[in-house]
């Protein structure tokens, strides 16, 4: 028998709540210390997208993103969480500007980390120009914040994954934690199939999508530093761990990233499938990776030892 929710501690609730299934608001409430979230420009202010009405599409009062301040194990943190169930978590003008403003404040303060809970298909196409530019501004703001000493941590495990420009912002973060469901890519499966044909990428082949773009592959490649179980509590622990691990940003990190990515191309550039990459990485029975339980997978990923730490 499961205990009624009201009798559970916040940690127990977070432990039992799927990050993938939870709303952006629930994720933040359970990720941060209980009751510590202060939202900036919340839904009561009704700052909606000025562009969706052109397409007769419904608006959301927070434009699909929550930004604010809270505490993580007692320490201050800025947070942003995208709502993947509204317009696929896509970046529009208002949505993007909220994150840009948060990052600019973090840069001025210099010591408070920023957690970005990605859940996005990329640019909101109904306001494509504003959304694209918002992403460019966020990338710039992330790098300026990091240069000022801010740790920017990305958490990827939502329904909409982290696609398009969201994937580029993730690539700008100091570190990433990803769950099995956390797909990270630029072009989504449907977009590749539409442009290049089903022979290039069959978007209905879900196993192909997961092993090409999913969290396990991203962790094994070293694109993500930590692999989290699909619970809010696990992402909370991953965020705390990454805040402790991230070093300062500078030219050495970018040079190391150049070498890390060039090495990846040399080693895996001719591979046609993720299973080939995993096999070359020294994993026996690589084809069983998709079915591997989380604890066994984490042990394996740690043994392979590929991370992007100090090289991004």
């Amino acid at each position: 028998m499961t205990a009624p929710l009201r009798d559970m501690t916040p940690a127990e609730r977070a432990r039992s709540t799927s990050f993938y299934e939870a709303s952006a608001r629930t994720r933040l409430e359970l990720l941060l210390d209980a009751g510590s979230l202060i939202e900036f420009i919340g839904p009561e202010q009704r700052e909606v997208s000025p562009h969706l009405r052109i397409f007769d599409l419904p608006e959301q009062f927070d434009d699909g993103i929550i930004v604010g301040h809270g505490r993580l194990d007692g320490s201050p943190a800025f947070v942003a969480a995208q709502e993947g169930r509204f317009m696929g978590g896509a970046f529009g003008e208002v949505h993007g500007a909220k994150l840009t403003g948060l990052l600019r404040a973090a840069r001025e303060i210099g010591t408070i980390p920023v957690l970005i809970l990605f859940d996005t298909g990329g640019v909101r196409l109904q306001e494509a120009n504003a959304g694209e530019l918002a992403i460019a501004e966020i990338m710039r703001a992330v790098m300026e914040a990091r240069a000022a000493g801010v740790k920017v941590i990305g958490l990827v495990g939502g329904r909409s994954g982290c696609y398009g420009g969201g994937g580029l912002i993730a690539g700008c973060c100091s570190a990433l934690a990803v769950s099995e469901f956390g797909r990270i890519a630029v072009s989504g499966p449907e977009v590749i199939e539409t442009n290049r044909g089903v022979e290039e990428f069959d978007s209905r082949d879900r196993a192909l999508v997961w092993r090409t773009m999913g969290g396990k592959h991203r962790r094994l490649l070293g694109a993500a530093d930590l692999f989290a179980d699909d619970s809010v509590q696990d992402f909370r622990e991953a965020a705390l761990e990454l805040i402790g691990l991230v070093g300062p940003f500078g030219l050495d990190g970018l040079k190391a990233e150049q070498e890390r990515l060039a090495d990846r191309l040399r080693r895996f550039g001719a591979c046609l499938d993720a299973v080939e990459i995993w096999t070359i990485s020294g994993i026996a029975h690589a084809e069983t990776i998709p079915e591997l339980p989380t604890d066994q997978f984490i042990a394996l990923a740690d043994r392979i030892g590929r991370t992007s730490r100090d090289a991004r």
Binding site: G171, C172, V186, T212, A223, L254, L261, C271, I277
Partner: peptide, 23 residues
């Protein structure tokens, strides 16, 4: 837009180029 580019982590390569220019 290709399977190979996404398999190899295109988002990191594009982000890296942008980061280097911004730096």
């Amino acid at each position: 837009m290709s399977k190979r580019d996404e398999l190899l982590g295109l988002n990191e390569f594009l982000a890296h180029l942008a980061k280097v220019l911004i730096y």
